[in-house]
Amino acid sequence: MLELRLVQGSLLKKVMDSIKDLVNDANFDCSATGFSLQAMDSSHVALVALLLRSEGFEHYRCDRNISMGMNLGNMAKMLKCAGNDDIITIKADDGSDTVTFMFESPTQDKIADFEMKLMDIDSEHLGIPEAEYHAIVRMPSSEFARICKDLSSIGDTVVISVTKEGVKFSTRGDIGTANIVCRQNTTVDKPEEATVIEMNEPVSLTFALRYMNSFTKASPLSSTVTISLSSELPVVVEYKIAEMGYIRFYLAPKIEEDEDESKP
């Protein structure tokens, strides 16, 4: 028996919006500690990890660990039917092949039940390691989204370079080049507007803007984004979900095409 009641139903809607374009279908894993998801994009290049801890739910009942395969497009369709202020309850019986989403209006005068078929999805859980990173940048998520969007109109890739002075995003394309530098800035009125750079080592890595832009779809979930970079590890783009958990995107950097390899 599974019953998860989330007062802030809009949160789940935003989560779906942020990953449904990247991931086709995925297993949602429920345990006593929380509701989580780990999935790859269709080309198996990027990885998404989502965690919503049990404490964040008004009511959290999960009798035994259960994994529910869902088509995220279909799930997003159903969650679109929930109002932004609605309370969402996720329900599933043991051994059932469906999951039920219940939407309650804040005034309790409207209750909607949506039942969705589950899928069998083969997927191995990948234990993603915690790691130390050479550089960690925290900045307003809207700013990051804007930068990725702007740069993608010029080029296909972004070079993210972190130095003591700040973080530089640059790209080049057929029409020219673009460089955007964000300096460390902690003297702001609101903490979420700060740009904070923790750096052990300077690092400069190239990423596909297509993926970065897809990651920034999670911007509505959090006012800040944390980008962790190491020259040997995939980048982590993390959006914290207030008092509940996080959504993290992992992506391997691109490398300069070796001349000798690209020639036929």
């Binding site: 290049v45 296909d156 394309g173 057929d174 040997e232 391997a252 490398i255």
Partner: peptide, 23 residues
Amino acid sequence: QSKKKPKQSQGSQLSLRSFFQRS
């Protein structure tokens, strides 16, 4: 007259495996 060069491929997307092979 855009002498459009073939899209400057500024590197190919590494799948994580090849990335580690490289590193």
